[in-house]
Design a protein around this nucleic acid. Structure first.
Length: 493
RNA sequence: GGCAUCGUGGCCGAGUGGCUAGGCACAGCUCUGCAAAAGCUUGUACAGCGGUUCGAAUCCGCUCGAUGCCUCCA
């Protein structure tokens, strides 16, 4: 029996606005699609939060015993920048500025993206398809939508007829918008002469002569519209209707709304059972976005090379910080919050490291089985990682009290606590024990151990002047000695 | 302007019609030669005003404030 059969998982569905019991379309299997990054610059921390939320979700599904096909695309075809730069997409623009081929830009930032995700300990998705690798599929969908009467061609471009679609379907059901309101409130744009209606969106865009990224199509040379790639790739790899579609909150409208329209127009069925949206990471109370410059790169946090934070933070600390908030809540990044997370995370790791050394007893003074289920209950309630972490700290307290001999644990329960802690901390939350480079650390610890011995001799001889000198001078070098019952340890700041 | 979300103790951040979230900081205690570190213990908060209710921080209304989307964006 698989775990998922005994755990009652609920998921907040953006489509209904409610928390719903989760069942997959095919027993034991889950198809999940998450909108990936546009690779025209370095991935920033805000992007990472969304992917991290879904990484945690992916990990929990796997832990529950589901076979998951997790598809996360790479958008490498670029989108239009704005009307002032009609016909030139983001990737082509950047390429010109940097004197690079568009695919060179794509390659550079795809590599950067993967590097960052690896540092954050992300599991790779099952399939990571690219938009440019699925031009044929996208063209086929456009042809299909035109055939079904929901799109029209104009001057080499193809547009989706939202007004017509809305007569038989409901455009705006995901974002809670009404088409009439949208039309009434649209700002007048300059270059929408080709569109029948302001809310129509491009499925295919004619390429101007200087446009580098271009493909032949039945409507002439051009490139696919903004929303089509996700429909093409999700349908290809997960089917016409699949279990979960995720992405950032900011993609809800228009991107995901358009995806629904395209899929329904083409396949006649609603594409997704559960729409999940991860909320924004803010910096100084504002959304992080590359376009406004209000952003932090992961590398800047790991290195401490930035003007916002007082020190460097490891990927696991950042990950722990993010996991302390629910994925549907806005999370504000600050130095104080990261410092607090770092301390808390270290306390968790310390307890975890001590766990195997605990003495066991004939009885447990703590209901370990009930605690374990509480951990599952937290995750089953729409992946509530902050509650899970609160439960983990309950175990930390318990472990520490056993250490102080104020609580007891049986050998069997100890194993259960160990397994459960490891499962949730490492497998589900994806946290890692800080990995210090072995070579230099080895030498350093040899030297410090020697000084610790000398200090102990001095202390035994009540030569506190010498012992304090060793302690204080090391502290000044950023090496802190920690006196415990079982001797002295140290940590490097 | 339209749509939506949110406003929780010093800070971060869960939750929710009656029952201690948790982390960090602060304080007290234990430990210590003194410290530091570590551990334990404690803290009673839910923007404002009105309403519903036996009971609301939680539901409803209004006000104020913040944010997101409406244009590429995780």
């Amino acid at each position: 029996m698989n775990l998922y059969q005994s755990q009652n998982l609920k998921i907040q569905n953006s489509l209904s606005g409610k928390k719903e019991n989760f069942t997959s379309i095919n027993e034991g299997h889950i198809g999940m699609y998450v909108c990936g990054p546009t690779v025209y610059s370095n991935v920033h921390l805000g992007n990472c939060r969304t992917f991290m939320s879904f990484d945690m979700i992916f990990r929990y599904f796997k832990h529950l015993g589901y076979k998951v096909r997790y598809v996360r695309n790479i958008t490498d075809a670029g989108h239009l920048v704005d009307d002032a730069e009609e016909g030139e997409d983001k990737i082509a623009k950047k390429a010109r500025l940097e004197k690079l081929e568009p695919m060179e830009v794509v390659q550079r930032y795809t590599v950067d993206f993967h590097n960052v995700l690896q540092k954050f300990n992300f599991l790779p998705p099952s399939i990571e398809p690219t938009a440019t690798g699925h031009i044929i599929e996208q063209i086929e969908i456009i042809k299909d939508i035109i055939e079904k009467g929901f799109a029209y061609e104009k001057n080499g471009s193809v547009y989706f007829d939202v007004v017509k679609f809305n007569k038989t379907n409901e455009y705006g059901k995901l974002s809670g918008r009404k088409l009439e309101d949208m039309i009434a409130n649209t700002r007048t744009l300059t270059a929408q002469d080709e569109k029948k209606n302001s809310q129509d969106f491009a499925l295919w865009k004619k390429a101007e002569p200087q446009h580098i990224m271009r493909w032949p199509s039945p409507w002439g040379d051009g490139f696919p519209g903004w929303h089509l790639e996700c429909t093409a790739m999700s349908t290809k790899y997960l089917g016409e209707t699949f279990d979960i579609h995720g992405g950032g909150m900011d993609l809800k409208f228009p991107h995901h709304e358009c995806e629904i329209a395209q899929a329904e127009a083409s396949n006649g069925v609603s594409p997704v059972n559960f729409w999940m949206h991860a909320n924004m990471l803010t910096l100084n109370g504002k959304k992080m976005a590359k376009s406004t410059g209000n952003s932090l790169l992961p590398e800047e946090i790991f290195s401490g090379n930035n003007t916002i934070l007082s020190k460097a933070f490891s990927p696991s600390v950042v990950r722990f910080f993010m996991m302390q908030a629910h994925y549907t809540s806005i999370l504000d990044l600050s130095n104080d919050a990261l410092l607090a997370s770092e301390k808390g995370f270290n306390r968790l790791l310390d307890a975890l490291a001590f766990l195997p050394k605990l003495d066991t007893d004939t009885a447990s003074s703590f209901d370990v089985k009930a605690w374990k289920q509480k951990c599952y209950d937290a995750m089953n309630d729409d992946f509530n990682s902050p509650i899970l972490i609160a439960q983990l700290f309950d175990a930390v307290k318990y472990i520490n009290l056993i250490k102080e001999q104020k609580e007891t644990i049986t050998a069997e329960d100890k194993t259960l606590v160990e397994n459960t802690m490891y499962t949730f901390v490492f497998d589900v939350l994806g946290l890692q024990v800080k990995n210090e480079s072995q070579n230099d650390e080895g030498k350093l610890s040899g030297v410090v151990e020697l000084l610790i011995q000398l200090r102990k001799q001095a202390r035994d001889n009540k030569d506190f002047a010498t012992s304090d000198k060793i302690r204080d001078e090391l502290m000044a070098l950023g090496i802190q000695l920690k006196d415990g019952k079982d001797g002295t340890t140290f940590s490097v700041a």
